[in-house]
Write a protein that binds this DNA or RNA. Structure first.
Length: 710
DNA sequence: GCAACTCCCCAATTATTGGA
DNA sequence: TCCAATAATTGGGGAGTTGC
């Protein structure tokens, strides 16, 4: 599919001022007129049968050459290749040293066979030998083998030395590998090959890439990379109507090669021109691919838009070949399947054990839990700066103790134990949760357990279910500027103590209107949430260090921390929670079409079954989903577990209202009696009894007036 | 009054990414 | 390849409100 072009064609292309650009669909070269394209076709046999495409109507504004590019790695590869071929003593070398005799030539050849030389001393010794045995001077020999001024290594040419010298550059001026656009999803990736293998492993080219080896593999990966770059350039060109690579490589002194559609450094262009075989680097089917993946992208966007209704997503899922769990995408299921493999590729949990756990969920025995607690104490207590041990540590631990679980499960166990410890420390010492580091500080903590709303929440046994495949197709890339903007705008929320709410939807939307960003309010909210987490983690770490330092000082001085120092620690979460301002927004139309009609029997059954939850004081949780499902299995009803939960919630409300009413009437009666007796009531008498204590200070917008009137 | 709804919070968890 | 950071998702739960 390659086609060569004459210089006449090139000049015609660049001189073209026509309003239409025509492109040869075979070689992708662009022509200013139908005539020049026809002439091109006549000259190139391969391109005769192909169609042409009209690209743009603003030819005079665009230099097609500007939207094509070569990549830096290729330049380097090329330079390296050329250095290999064009040895410093060859005719093409920019440094030409006349070699007078065969002996001199042989001596130099001998010197360069084992280049680069490891160190300056060895090199000097070798050069001295040559100088002594031949008529060559030191300078003549040194010119052949440039010397690194830092490391003392000598190289086969100036270019090779230049590449090497980059390794000595300070970090900020060092070359940073640019991101490469994926030809399939167009997302720019630092590690394009890994991305391809993970996300697009079902594509033909990627399958071929996986199967290939050595040179072939390189060639395929290069072709994919180039296609991605080309498609990205083409897309930007078609959308922005301006030279793309000018924007992408601003300030670089590049020169366009019409022979291969590549860009090369002006300094190395001459050398390339000699070598250039006129082979276009672009994939001839690129335009078709663009269309194909543009359609796919549109389809993906459509799915993303309709994602809000999760029911839609249930229709397309992929099953794990090992455990049968379903996932939304092929990449998600592939990633999940990796969890069944251990580091060496064997099925996890099976590498040294005979039995495979029947249940995916591992049942931790007390003995095994103790082992984990003992082994990973530092991670669980938070004494370690690193949150979790590495995979290898976990695998070794599993091997040592012959545990029949995966390393991931051990990690989860550590995380859960760590979380448990944190919660425990918060209950034991609500004002200084950060004190729970090591046994010394624990002993200093108060043993008084406060059962408030927060503590009740801790009783929650969290679901063992895991999200089935996240949609990362539209994963947000936060720029530094936007991150700063969000942090500045929502600083009060990010720096707020635990328990404070996040900004409202309306606030975020308002922010988005003022600072338009290509993201949803949910994504901004997530960003704030994550920033908040990070800030808290940092604060926690700082607090830990400060505490450790304080303890050190304390030990040295033999004294103890003052109460004031202790009070500087974070506020009580429960108290902060009370500051929460609840939403005043109203639901937008309820669906009463499927409204449940509870029979007296079923209501009684539910009330009897879930009595403990209905009569429980405020702060107690509702029955778990699993409990409700279990109930439904025992007592089949034509309703969902959610409806039963709602029923219980409403029964609970009613019960509390009744209790409140009873308490009020009792109080009213008491007041009446007191008035009759001529006494006065204390403030406490006006509170609604046990409910007030259970509420634990929760600030709520109570409709006191209406309740009073009732 | 009741069932259902929206909005919000929280903790846990997973997926993805980029640096080392 | 490992690992930490980051972004996103999930399910449980609570409060307030709506409309039949």
């Amino acid at each position: 599919m390659n086609c060569t072009r004459s210089k006449r064609d090139d000049s015609r292309m660049s001189d073209s001022n026509s309003s239409v650009i025509l492109q040869c669909m075979s070689c992708l070269h662009v022509f200013g007129s139908a005539l020049s394209l026809a002439e091109h076709k006549r000259q190139s046999q391969d391109c005769q049968t192909e169609e042409e495409a009209v690209l743009c109507g603003e030819a005079e504004k665009v230099e097609w050459a500007d939207i094509k590019c070569e990549i830096k790695e290729e330049e380097e590869e090329e330079i390296a290749e050329e250095e290999k071929e064009d040895f410093c003593c060859c005719e093409k070398s920019p440094v030409k040293v006349p070699v007078k005799t065969t002996a001199q030539s042989e001596a130099l050849q001998l010197l360069k066979t084992d280049l680069p030389h490891p160190n300056r001393e060895e090199r000097e010794a070798r050069v001295n030998d040559i100088v002594q045995s031949t008529d060559l001077t030191n300078d003549q020999v040194n010119e052949h083998f440039p010397l690194c001024s830092v490391g003392g290594k000598s190289f086969k040419g100036k270019e090779a030395l230049k590449i090497h010298e980059k390794t000595h550059l300070p970090k900020d001026s060092e070359f940073k590998k640019p991101k490469r656009p994926c030809p399939y999803c167009r997302v720019k990736q630092t590690k394009l090959m890994r991305h391809l293998l993970q996300k697009h492993y079902d594509e033909d080219d990627v399958i071929a890439l996986k199967a290939a080896n050595g040179t072939e593999k390189k060639a395929i990966s290069r072709a994919i990379r180039k296609r991605g770059i080309f498609l990205e350039n083409q897309r930007q060109y078609l959308e922005a109507k301006e030279p793309v690579y000018q924007a992408m490589r601003r300030g670089k002194d590049k020169k366009y090669c019409p022979g291969c559609d590549g860009f090369y450094n002006r300094s190395s262009f001459g050398r390339h021109e000699v070598k250039c075989k006129g082979i276009t680097s672009l994939d001839p089917s690129a335009l078709k691919i663009t269309q194909k993946y543009q359609n796919q992208l549109k389809a993906k966007q459509a799915v993303s838009r309709s994602k809000k209704t999760r029911a839609n997503d249930k229709d397309c899922f992929y099953l794990c070949s090992v455990c049968g769990e379903s996932f939304k995408g092929t990449s998600a299921v592939k990633n999940h399947e990796k969890t069944h493999l251990s580091g060496d590729g064997e099925e996890d949990g099976v590498d040294s054990l005979e039995e495979i756990p029947e249940e995916k969920r591992f049942q931790w025995s007390t003995a095994d839990t103790d082992l984990v607690l003992k082994e990973f104490e530092e991670y669980i207590t938070g004494a370690s700066e690193i949150c979790l041990p590495g995979k290898q540590d976990l695998l070794r631990f599993r091997q040592r103790h012959q545990l029949k679980c995966t390393w991931m499960q051990i990690r989860s166990k550590i995380m859960n134990e760590s979380s448990k410890t944190r919660r425990k420390s918060q209950i034991e010492c609500p004002n200084s949760s950060e004190m729970a580091i090591g046994k010394e500080s624990e002993s200093e903590m108060s043993s008084e357990i406060l059962i408030d709303e927060g503590a009740m929440k801790n009783r929650r046994v969290l679901s063992s279910k895991v999200p089935k495949g996240l949609n990362h197709s539209a994963r947000m890339k936060w720029s530094k500027e936007n991150t700063e903007l969000i942090c500045r705008e929502f600083e009060e929320y990010i720096t707020a103590p635990k328990g404070m709410r996040l900004p409202r939807k309306s606030e975020v939307i308002n922010f988005l209107q003022r600072y338009p960003m290509e993201c949803s309010h949910v994504q901004i909210r997530t960003k704030i949430m994550n920033e908040l987490k990070t800030a808290r983690m940092k604060a926690k770490r700082t607090s830990r260090i400060a505490n450790a330092q304080a303890r050190l000082v304390q030990r040295e001085e033999g004294g103890s921390l003052s109460e004031q120092d202790a009070s500087n620690l974070p506020n009580d979460e429960g108290a902060m929670k009370n500051r929460r301002v609840l939403s005043s927004k109203v639901p937008k139309g309820l669906n009463h079409s499927a409204r449940m009609k509870w029979s007296k029997e079923n209501t009684e059954l539910i009330c009897r079954e879930f009595e403990e939850y209905i009569t429980a004081p405020k702060g107690m949780r509702l029955p778990r989903k699993s409990e409700v499902i279990n109930f439904l299995q025992r007592h089949p009803m034509e309703c969902s577990h959610v409806q039963i939960r709602t029923k219980i919630m409403n029964e609970l409300k009613t019960a509390r209202m009744k209790a409140k009413g009873t308490s009020r009437s009792a109080n009213a009666q008491a007041r009446l009696v007191q008035r009759e007796e001529g006494g006065s009531l204390s403030e406490q008498d006006f509170l609604p009894g046990d409910i007030s204590s259970a509420e634990n200070g929760e600030v709520r917008k109570e409709k006191t007036s209406s309740a009073e009137s009732q």
